[in-house]
Design a protein around this nucleic acid. Structure first.
Lengths: 247, 247
DNA sequence: GAGTGGTCTAGACCACTCC
DNA sequence: GAGTGGTCTAGACCACTCA
């Protein structure tokens, strides 16, 4: 039975308890990304609350991009593998200057294994010296390289990731992590700076050494605000810009 | 009387009609920023709908940062002049490297009047040659200059804006535009690029000429997605970074 | 036509704020 | 204690999807 909503002292409304119960279902893998969760009335019966209460819980989770409602069909676990093109660009804010929506193409360059240094262990919340996997890749827009990134992943969570897997996979990087390792990225923080291009980056991006690049450092989180990815990208903003909506 | 919600073909639910009615009250200035709007039950009576329907309309507007709910007190028109420090930093995403929340201090340098060129007229949605006001200013963090910006405003909307007014005013720039000109910024789009510092910017920011700076171009919108501000800033990201939350 | 989410209602009670 | 927003319920009906 559910805790009575009105006892307190740490008052938590019923719909939030329902929310965390649904969240448990997501974390435990009971409902996988892309799959449908039970209908509102079914959940209401299971949890012993009214449909309106379940509705409010789901509403909040839909607003947080954890669930996706589809009228007439059902409620689904949000996924990076769905057909909605927006979910592809939800984390990549780079837009071509001419406005056209170009498909970006990922070119994995390297993938190797290492031990977590101080910075990696701190940002990923793992032990110093714990295994990590590092991916180096290029992002092309219309066959021209625009982004070079290095991605740091906790080795235990993504054991078995290799260059071959990256090259084979059709779809987005987060789609791969989701379908192959069952880890779904829910939100991320990006820190942006302007930096000068070093020699190797300049060559890869086809710009002059020392020319200004946009440095984008990202930490991504899965359910429960657990950090599971740390990456640093260098963006060439000669023909593209980073678009951000403030509200 | 309200349009019946179930006639269609362009079906618009009742609560959205209520929403646009409340929006009218905001645009017309019936309820000014910082002031309280009528209670839910009062609005329900006025519009001839149930309280739940008004509630849903207000919920959406609160999610869009147009209104602010305060339990036990009432619902208020969102303002850049409230005491909540978050509303100050809602549009300035620059964060010091050391993590401490520093107060930024604005130093107006110049304020002059001109005629809108092609770019200004297009982004601000005004006629070519229409009057515009241009503000040039520095942003200091702990007495050190970190940002230099130029702000383009439609002259008719902000008639009378001068350097003296800018220097006198205590509070944020958007707070000034709001209390003095009755224009509230609701959302904005920012386009970021990495650029090399030109001579004058380098001097003002205390960096070497040619060193990388973050160029931030912003278009801000008031109610009804009407653009009313265009600005370009150059951010020194030596000791600060631009923080963005992706979700 | 059955099942899903979406809207709308009316009413009860709770939590918070202020007088 | 009166007034506000916040939660929860139960029930009706609508819009959409799919078979």
């Amino acid at each position: 039975m559910l805790q009575d909503a009105h006892i307190s002292p740490t008052f938590s409304p019923l719909y939030r308890q329902i929310k965390s119960l649904i969240l448990q279902g997501l974390e435990s893998g009971e409902w996988r990304p892309g799959a449908a969760i039970p209908s509102e009335s079914e959940l209401a019966a299971r949890f012993g609350v009214s449909q309106g209460t379940v509705r409010k819980a789901i509403d909040e989770m839909a607003a947080e991009n954890l669930l996706v409602r589809r009228q007439g069909k059902g409620t689904y676990v949000a996924s990076h593998n769905d057909d909605d093109p927006r979910s592809l660009f939800r984390f990549l804010r780079l837009v071509p200057e001419n406005g056209k929506l170009e498909a970006s193409q990922s070119v994995p360059l390297e993938c190797w294994h290492a031990k977590a240094g101080q910075e990696a262990s701190r940002t990923l919340g793992i032990k110093l010296g714990a295994p990590i996997t590092i991916v180096r890749r290029l992002l092309n827009f219309v066959a021209k390289p625009v982004v070079i990134e290095e991605i740091y992943l906790p080795g235990e969570t993504f054991a078995g990731l290799s260059l071959e897997i990256l090259q084979e996979y059709q779809g987005s990087f987060y789609g791969l992590l989701e379908s192959r390792f069952g880890v779904r990225m829910v939100r991320a923080e990006e820190r942006l700076r302007a930096v000068a291009a070093d020699r190797t980056s300049a060559v890869l991006l086809g710009v002059a050494e020392g020319s200004p690049l946009l440095s984008v450092e990202r930490v991504s989180f899965t359910y429960g605000d657990r950090p599971v990815e740390w990456r640093r990208g260098l963006y060439s903003t000669a023909a593209h810009y980073y678009l951000n909506e403030l509200s």
